[in-house]
């Protein structure tokens, strides 16, 4: 028996919004410790990793490890049937070929129950090595989304250059060039407005706008985003999922000039 109840059901809806443009289907691995999803996008350029800790749920039970392969377009359609303040429960029997989504209104006066067929998907788990990153940039997630959107008008790539002075995002194309510099903030009223750079050595890398823009679909999950960069290794773009976990996107840099 698997059962996971989340009072802040809205978080699950936001997770689906954050992955459904990159992935059409994926497996949710359910274990005693929580739920994980790891999948490469449809064109095998980026990797998405979602981790939801068991303790983050209001009720969590997983008697046996369970792999639930899902059509994420269908899952997203079902989650769209819930209200933003609904409590969401996912439930499956051992060896079942369906999963149930139960939506309860906060007053418990409306309860909806949706069943979805599970799929058998080929598991393609990648081992992500532990990396000490040369630069870790923490910044407001809305600011990052805005910069990616704005710079996409100039070219298909964004150059991210991080030094101890700050971080510079640049793009160049037919209409001209664009540069956005963010300095590390000295003092902020709200922690979520801070730009904090943890730098061991300066790094400059080039990334595809198209993917960065898809990663920013996670913006509603968290007021802050972290960008971890290291020469010649994939960028990690990470958003917290409330108090219950995190979503990470991995994207290899572009090479050549």
């Amino acid at each position: 028996m698997f059962e996971a109840r989340l009072v802040h059901g809205n978080l699950l809806k936001k997770v689906l919004d954050a992955i459904k443009d990159l992935l059409t289907e994926a497996s949710w691995d359910c274990a005693d410790s929580g739920i994980q999803l790891q999948a490469m996008d449809n064109s095998h350029v980026s990797l998405v990793s979602v981790n939801l800790r068991a303790e983050g749920f209001d009720k969590y039970r997983c008697d046996r490890n369970l792999i639930m392969g899902m059509d994420l377009t269908s899952m997203s359609k079902i989650l769209k049937c819930s209200a933003s303040d609904d409590i969401i429960t996912m439930k499956a029997q051992d060896n079942a070929d369906t999963v149930s989504f139960i939506f309860e209104s906060p007053s418990q006066e409306k309860v909806s129950d949706y069943q979805m067929k599970l799929m058998n998907l080929d598991q393609d788990h990648l081992g992500i090595p532990e990396t000490e990153y040369a630069c870790v940039i923490k910044m407001p997630s809305g600011e990052f989304a805005r910069i990616c959107r704005d710079l996409s008008n100039f070219g298909e790539n964004i150059v991210i250059a991080c030094s101890k002075e700050g971080v510079k995002f640049s793009a160049a194309g037919d209409i001209g060039t664009a540069n956005v510099k963010l300095a590390q903030t000295s003092s902020v009223d709200k922690e979520e407005d801070a730009v904090v750079i943890d730098m061991q050595e300066p790094v400059t890398l080039t990334f595809a706008c198209r993917y960065l823009n898809m990663f920013t679909k996670a913006t509603p999950l968290s007021p802050q985003v972290s960008l971890s960069m290291h020469p010649d290794v994939p960028l990690v773009v990470e958003y917290a999922i409330g108090e219950i976990g995190q979503i990470q996107y991995f994207l290899a840099p572009k090479i050549g000039d």
Binding site: M40, H44, V45, S46, L47, L126, G127, I128, P129, N157, T206, A208, V233, P234, F250, L251, A252, P253, K254, I255, G256, D257
Partner: peptide, 12 residues
């Protein structure tokens, strides 16, 4: 010319 590097070599 910028070429997209595949991810898989980094992770296997």
């Amino acid at each position: 010319l910028h070429l997209q590097q595949p991810l898989i070599p980094f992770f296997r």
